[in-house]
Amino acid sequence: MNLTDPTEILATLVRCPSVTPEEGGALDALDTMLGELGFRRDRVTFQEAETPDVDNLYARLGEDGPHLMFAGHTDVVPPGPAEDWTHGPFSGEIAEGRLYGRGAVDMKGGIACFIAALARLLSENDKLPGSVSLLITGDEEGPAINGTVKLLEHAAASGERWDAALVGEPTNPNELGEMIKVGRRGSLSARLIVEGTQGHVAYPHLADNPLRALISFADALTEPPLDTGNDRFPPSNLELTSIDTGNTATNVIPASTEMRFNVRFNDLWSAESLEGELRARLEVASMALKYRSGQPPMRYQLSFQERPSPSFLTRDDRLVATLSGAVAAVTGQTPTLSTTGGTSDARFIKDYCPVVEFGLVGQTMHKVDEHVEIDDLETLTLIYKAFIENWFAATQRAG
């Protein structure tokens, strides 16, 4: 295989049906490729009760000097019915200048480009002026329990330390060069159960309708807004995602109802402070329900997910400037520094070293006929190559 060609690498990876948590041959293929480039590799499977076992790969080239990590995942979301695809979801077919397949964008393409960039650098130099490692998981699209978190702990316990990290998630909305992720909003999910008394709708005085209270509780959680954002983050946002009573009858007041919601929050909040704010809003609302005058407050239970994702912002100017400079040099664009979008494994990496994210255009990720432009693969490879070279040079100058 020509490891300087990102298209050939990506086609090989896409043909591996690595739907979470299945390895599908993707890590085996990467293991072989990185071995050819001289990396020492560590394959490790992590386990936890009531979660699927997950295979992971950590590989390092070099033993000293500045240490740059590239992080990514080979697992992909299910493709849905294969007949819905113009080209098979695991075919890796190329048509009209595009490579098709699940994971082409999210995010086997980023991995392919980074490996190709390294291969080109190694073909020009005897060795790198430092160390490069790849931290690749098979659990990013799943529970994210037996993947990056544990792989970082495992590597750190073995003595690994990193100076900076690049995550190859698709970050560009429309064209390559638009956007670098320099942080992420936090994510907090919650479940609210409101308890009432079941009864006949014709005799409401004999019942206690929890849905009435739920409306007021929902208003209290969403208004006023949690904040107005700041210069690096948009406003925090709470979205209701589900309301369910399990009631199939039209003449029965339900005994209880359940609402689920998620908050994407900026760095004005921690998970703990946000939980406190939401509990306070519900407590005030429970005491102020107009139709319950003279009655005790409405009973409710609020619970939060066990592993909320924190917000973070990378403030390493050298890392951000080096990546921005590489993007501008190759594409002619000055990328926007953004914290928008969902969560990524960068939220775990930031506890070990500064981290930024830059990858392909994400328009087709998770969609039928997911694909990447072949030209974009070459462009991203050139950006990664320039970034690696310039980051080592800037780090050595600073040191």
Score class of each variant (00 low, 15 high):
N2C: 00
D5T: 08
T7R: 04
E8Q: 13
P17Y: 06
V19P: 06
M33D: 04
L37G: 07
E48P: 00
E48H: 06
V54I: 10
G65N: 11
M69T: 05
P79K: 09
P79L: 00
G80S: 13
E83F: 02
W85G: 02
G88P: 08
G88M: 01
P89V: 01
F90I: 04
G92N: 07
L99K: 10
Y100N: 06
V105Q: 04
M107V: 02
G109A: 07
I111M: 07
L118K: 05
E124Y: 07
N125L: 00
D126M: 03
G130V: 01
G130L: 04
D139R: 12
E140G: 04
A144F: 08
I145G: 00
L152C: 00
D163E: 09
L176Y: 10
I180D: 13
K181S: 09
V182C: 02
V182T: 09
G183W: 04
I193W: 10
G196V: 01
Q198D: 01
G199M: 05
G199F: 02
V201P: 08
A202V: 02
A207M: 05
S216H: 14
P224W: 15
D227H: 06
N230D: 15
P234W: 06
D244E: 14
G246E: 14
V252L: 12
I253E: 05
A255D: 13
F265R: 06
L268T: 10
A271W: 04
S273I: 01
L274I: 02
A280F: 07
S286K: 08
P297M: 10
S303T: 15
F312W: 14
V320K: 12
S324K: 11
S324A: 13
S324M: 05
V330N: 04
T331R: 05
Q333L: 14
S338L: 03
T339K: 04
G341R: 12
D351N: 15
G362N: 09
T364C: 05
V372G: 02
T379Q: 14
I383D: 09
Y384P: 09
N390E: 14
A394M: 05
T395C: 06
